[in-house]
Amino acid sequence: MSYFLTQLANGLSYGLILGLIAVGFVIVFTSTGVLNFAHGSVLLTGAYLVAVLHDPIGFWAAVVVGIAGAALLGVLINAVLVRNLAEANPGTAAILMLGVDILLLTELTRRIGNRVLPIGAPWGADVVTLGGVTLPTSRAVAAGLAVLVFGLLWFLFARTGFGVAMRAAAADGDTASLMGIRLSRTGAAGWALAGALAAIAGIFLASFPAPGVAPALAISAFAAIPAWVLGGFDSVVGAIVGGLIIGVVTALAVGYETQLHFLGRGLGEVVPYAVMILVLLVRPSGLFGREEAVRA
């Protein structure tokens, strides 16, 4: 039982981290219509900055720089590249982001090389045990912080004028601009938020299970795509729920792999996508999405 609870706690905390990444996908998509395939390298950039800077300026200062750097990178990608597409539509924008991802990832890979850069987090490899459930401290902190971040996001979108403007712009950009809302600003804010969320997720993913920052970290953003799709493309709540589902399913698949050996090795890698495809077969628009959004 406690093994199950440990796996569950592990899955939920992982799911919250995936939720941070998936929410970034949602916000960029609703605010600028871009399927951000470079999300992973933005995440890696944030984590890389922390790994490089934690020694000279201290961990927490490095975290601030890492988050700000990732946010700024997102804003720049949007302003310099996305807004200058020769033919602006969701398809070309998505492919542009593939190109951007290749550029960023190649450069970061060159800088990191074969090394694994320690992130320098104060919690290191500690674990906490509570009522028979053991969880890496990194994961416990991540879960708490993710919940806090989601609370702040709720405050932003429900209580502030700019947040309401962002939602209005996401719902109907043309009409929002008739209200004097500048879509360039709401778009930039969306990219900045997504970058910051990715950096936070990256820092935690680089402390557990990975021992530090390596280029493979960028791939972890891909693991949030099933969470995003599952939730329904344009729903922040859906992305968080999707993250939790994928997190728990993945943790259980890995935790009980020996019992599930008939499904093959490496189950953890394929299970999120299998769940995604199964859900799409039943609900093509995801759990929280609107049908008309995807089905014309």
């Binding site: 004028g161 719902a171 008739l178 809302i181």
Partner: peptide, 21 residues
């Protein structure tokens, strides 16, 4: 705009807030 184009998922108050942005 024609056809009203209110923000359907926003509350009445939030619609007004967006208008007064």
């Amino acid at each position: 705009p024609e056809g009203r184009r209110i923000f359907r998922d926003l509350t009445v108050e939030e619609n007004l807030r967006a208008g007064g942005y």
